[in-house]
């Protein structure tokens, strides 16, 4: 433990004052003034019985080359670095907390329709029932988010700021859906690289103001991106996509799909999700983006039927 011959006095000191070197080094904490004084008093009075003042300094001082002149660890205890750690430990999202469920998007011949319900769940609790999960970004883009609501709202903040900055030059340049989608995908991929993901699945929908070309793209918490004529996040990927693909299998089908049909299709899918996804809500927001801009609205699931499914083919026992 001790490397040089030490007098008894030092040992006693060690037992009575194993406190941190921080105290000895005064300043930093006003609350330690008392103990600092105590230490000084104690050391001088105690040691002066055997040593000169000059020697006291050399004995309590580290004599080894690597720590010369610093207080000895075996006298004062190891240096307490804790005051340096002023910030909290870094925490990363390990799982989503308050979540939104599916987002649906369908391209049609002169635009895109996107929809998401207004429920935010806390586990199985329908915690908030009036949450807007669609965000208009600029004039021809709507971003819909599933997954963690707080991460979504943070992303909304980023997008708001992005849009404000984009308007500073006041030129004729604007961010449209492809650019917004790329930006979001960069943000999400960079966060996954930091092991601190934004826990969302996001659809970006838009239309080109000049060509009317519809745009629909997906990105999620790992930065995975893809595009398709119809996209859905969460349970929608399992429940709605099969229905949607029946109507818009490819880009050719997109160019034949009218806005009215697309709307009906989304209504139908939202109803299926309302029936089968326990985390879904009866009220949802929708947005249609064409070359003329964004139209938004809110809707409730209509013509619901909760009758016993006995006679419906595919459920229960039946003789064909």
């Amino acid at each position: 433990m001790h490397r040089t011959g030490l007098s008894l006095g030092i040992h006693q000191l060690e037992h009575t004052q194993p406190s941190s070197r921080l105290n000895h080094h005064h300043h930093h904490h006003s609350t330690t003034t008392a103990s600092t004084n105590y230490l000084h008093t104690l050391s001088s009075s105690h040691l002066s019985q055997h040593h000169q003042d000059l020697q006291i300094e050399s004995i309590t001082m580290n004599q080894f080359p690597h720590g010369w002149g610093r207080p000895r660890d075996d006298v004062y205890g190891a240096y307490d670095n804790s005051y340096l750690n002023e910030s909290q430990p870094i925490t990363h999202t390990q799982r989503p907390i308050v979540t939104g469920t599916s987002v649906l998007g369908v391209k049609f011949k002169d635009g895109v329709i996107i929809a998401a319900d207004n429920i935010a769940s806390y586990g199985s609790l329908a915690r908030y029932d009036n949450v807007e999960r669609l965000l208009q970004v600029g004039t021809h883009t709507v971003v819909g988010a599933g997954g963690d609501i707080s991460d979504m709202q943070y992303l909304h903040l980023l997008l708001d700021n992005l849009l404000i900055k984009e308007q500073y030059p006041a030129d004729d340049h604007q961010l449209y859906a492809p650019q917004v989608h790329t930006y979001i995908s960069r943000v999400l991929y960079q966060r996954r690289n930091k092991f601190d993901p934004l826990w969302n699945s996001i659809l970006t929908a838009g239309a080109d103001p000049k060509t009317s070309e519809p745009f629909l793209s997906y990105v999620d918490l790992k930065g995975t991106t893809y595009s398709a004529p119809a996209l859905a996040t969460g349970y929608g990927a399992h429940l709605a996509i099969p229905i949607l693909r029946r109507h818009v299998a490819d880009e050719e089908a997109v160019s034949n799909l009218t806005q009215e049909d697309a709307q009906k299709l989304v209504e139908e899918c939202m109803k299926v999700l309302w029936y089968r996804d326990a985390r879904s809500g009866v009220k949802y927001s929708w947005a249609i983006i064409t070359k003329d801009g964004v139209t938004t609205g809110s809707k409730e699931i209509e013509n619901q039927s909760w009758k016993f499914a006995e006679m419906i083919k595919g459920y229960g026992a039946q003789n064909i």
């Binding site: 997906y218 995975t224 893809y226 595009s227 398709a228 990927a237 399992h238 996509i241 490819d250």
Partner: peptide, 11 residues
């Protein structure tokens, strides 16, 4: 392009 048993996109 798929993830698990879901096909994300065919293109």
């Amino acid at each position: 392009s798929s993830e698990g048993y879901s096909i994300n996109t065919r293109t």
